[in-house]
């Protein structure tokens, strides 16, 4: 653990030493906010908007999604993508040579804090600013569920990354499937209840659970849905993590270093 913290410390120090990079990332974040909010503003100025969602609620929903995505990208997806690349170009073998636990080694080698800073603190501030505008009645229990669902979605996507990495051991050019995976994310950029389609709702909740990034945490905090779904989400996190871990273990065991 101390080694890991030391590593994170170096990464943070390294990141902040390049002030221009930090400025650049802030600039990208501002452009990102524009790209997400302008279409909503245009739709809401020309029409009545989305059923049951006002514009502030929609911004709150979107910002929740960004906060969750910074965590998931940092601790799951970027690591998964990096290892998939390493398997593809053969540099994964270098990880196997060092006398360190392989899972631990994969984590610290591929951890990239650029997805975390400055996005996470910046969007957290935006979320706090939006909070009174949405008119949410504060409740500790809802706040707890809000944080819990974000945490659950992180665990689920860590499991997903494990599954995807293990596939990369056997299927050459598996990286194309990541693109497909991200396509599903596009559906969840809007609140899933507006689709009025049960299949889409179930699919984005239990199969590719991108709705956990934004819809469920934001809706529970805003009191739009009740908390009865939470136990099934906890169970899902356990299942996905277990599948991810065992498939990764299986993949490592059968890795032949022959991809490319």
């Amino acid at each position: 653990m101390s080694l890991f913290l030391e590593y994170v410390k170096i990464k943070i120090k390294d990141f902040f030493s390049y002030r221009f990079t930090l400025f650049l990332f802030l600039l990208i974040d501002i452009i990102y906010i524009i790209s997400l909010s302008v279409p909503f503003l245009i739709i809401y100025s020309a029409t009545e908007g989305f059923p049951n969602w006002n514009i502030y609620e929609l911004f709150f929903f979107t910002t929740t999604g960004i906060i969750t995505s910074t965590l998931i990208f940092t601790f799951a997806i970027v690591i998964g993508l990096d290892i998939t690349d390493k398997i593809k170009d053969g540099s994964f073998d270098l990880l196997l040579l060092k006398p360190v636990n392989i899972y631990y080694h994969m984590l610290i080698q591929s951890l990239d804090l650029r997805n975390f800073f400055p996005d996470f603190p910046l969007f957290l501030i935006i979320l706090i600013i939006l909070y009174p505008l949405v008119g949410i009645l504060f409740s500790w229990i809802n706040l707890f569920y809000f944080i819990l669902i974000i945490f659950i979605s992180c665990l689920i996507f860590i499991g997903f990354s494990g599954i995807f990495i293990s596939f990369s051991f056997f299927v050459p050019h598996f990286d194309s499937f990541w693109d497909l995976f991200f396509s599903f994310r596009e559906i969840s950029r809007k609140p899933i209840d507006i689709y009025k389609n049960k299949f889409i709702v179930l699919f984005l909740t239990f199969v590719f659970p991108f709705a956990l990034w934004n819809y469920y945490p934001a809706s529970i905090l805003m009191g739009k849905i009740d908390t009865s779904i939470v136990p099934s989400l906890v169970l899902m996190a356990i299942i996905f993590l277990a599948i991810g871990f065992f498939s990764l273990k299986y993949g490592l065991k059968h890795y032949k270093s022959a991809n490319g």
Partner: peptide, 23 residues
């Protein structure tokens, strides 16, 4: 894979704009 991705976008746009117009 790209075709599959397109089907997803068909679904999004189909239901999204239907919901906007109906509302």
């Amino acid at each position: 894979i790209n075709i599959f991705g397109k089907i997803i976008f068909f679904i999004i746009n189909f239901y999204l704009w239907q919901a906007i117009f109906n509302y």
